[in-house]
């Protein structure tokens, strides 16, 4: 066996593996998408229908627009509030992510330049992320109930900011660390204040990193389920919680509707993900990798 055949075998192996992975990752997502376009008699059949001939938008119309369709159970879906949930989910995710990134970036700057948190504290900060939310959910309900924060966006935003801030600090810090100190010294000589330095010198330089962080945190807050389930009631509805309510109709699981909602829940993140995929690689290393 010469070198060339060896290399060919290696390449075949590599692409075989990549192809198999592509299928394993892609198929469930493909199935979710195609089910959302299938008419109800094709949702659950044996043998399964892998490619539908009868594409329809009915599932989307029913789930998102509340249009009544022919099947009786569907009428229940008009009672749901997907658009309100979409609005709340967006508001929640955007507000809490913005706050988390803003606070986190400032702290990261302070840590990077003034060591306002020691190395040990920085690692302790990560621990905040590691407390499972269920752990504090019960007393949090009582506390929030006393403060009238149950079932409000504010209440959820506060928890989301706290649980995501460790990630924002760590991710943005790795970007700030890469900026040479000479930049700020130059700014100082030119007479810029500390805040001006941050805003006019540092921020433009780490903008892509902040975008990556922002979108990563957005993913986390967008999909959060447990705290939203426990801390929301009627005034606040989020999409993951709403999605879980689609279970248990007597007609059998309503796969098509569920899939149509699931696609809507997932799509924004996938679009964002494609946006930031290059930045993700850098943002994710928590300063463990230097270039």
């Amino acid at each position: 066996m010469n070198r060339r055949t060896k290399r060919r075998i290696a390449a075949a192996f590599r692409f075989g593996f990549l192809g198999a992975s592509l299928f394993a990752v892609g198929f469930p997502i493909y199935w979710m998408i195609i089910t959302s376009f299938k008419p109800d008699n094709e949702w659950f059949t044996w043998p399964p229908i892998y490619w539908s001939e009868n594409w329809t938008l009915d599932n989307y119309r029913v789930v998102w627009l509340g249009i009544q369709a022919r099947i009786t159970a569907q009428e229940a879906f008009t009672m749901q509030k997907p658009l309100q949930a979409l609005k709340h989910s967006l508001a929640l995710a955007l507000i809490s992510t913005t706050l988390s990134v803003a606070f986190g970036t400032l702290i990261a700057y302070g840590v990077s330049r003034y060591r306002i948190l020691s190395d040990r504290r920085m690692f302790n900060l990560l621990m905040l992320r590691m407390i499972p939310p269920i752990v504090v959910a019960a007393p949090l309900t009582l506390y929030y109930s006393a403060l009238n924060l149950l079932d409000t966006l504010t209440g959820l935003v506060i928890v989301y900011v706290i649980t995501t801030i460790p990630y924002t600090v760590w991710m943005t810090k790795s970007f700030i660390d890469e900026i040479p100190h000479e930049m700020e010294q130059a700014a100082e000589i030119l007479g810029a204040s500390r805040w001006q330095t941050i805003w006019e010198v540092i921020f433009p330089l780490i903008r892509s990193g902040v975008v990556a962080t922002f979108l990563f945190i957005l993913i986390l807050t967008w999909s959060e389920y447990l705290l939203a389930l426990i801390l929301s009631k009627v005034d606040v509805v989020t999409l993951p919680v709403q999605l879980s309510k689609y279970e248990g109709t007597t007609e059998g699981r309503v796969y098509g509707y569920q899939a149509a909602l699931a696609v809507g829940v997932t799509l924004p993140l996938i679009v964002i993900g494609c946006f930031i995929r290059k930045h993700l690689v850098r943002g994710f290393t928590f300063g463990m990798v230097k270039r």
Binding site: A138, T141, L142, S145, L150, D151, K233, V234, K245, G248
Partner: peptide, 26 residues
Amino acid sequence: KDIQDLSIFVIPQRAMAEAVSRSPKI
């Protein structure tokens, strides 16, 4: 005016949670 839309199998737990917080909302 409004309903908190939960499956009948989930409502017992959520109602108990209301008892914990003694909220007048529902």
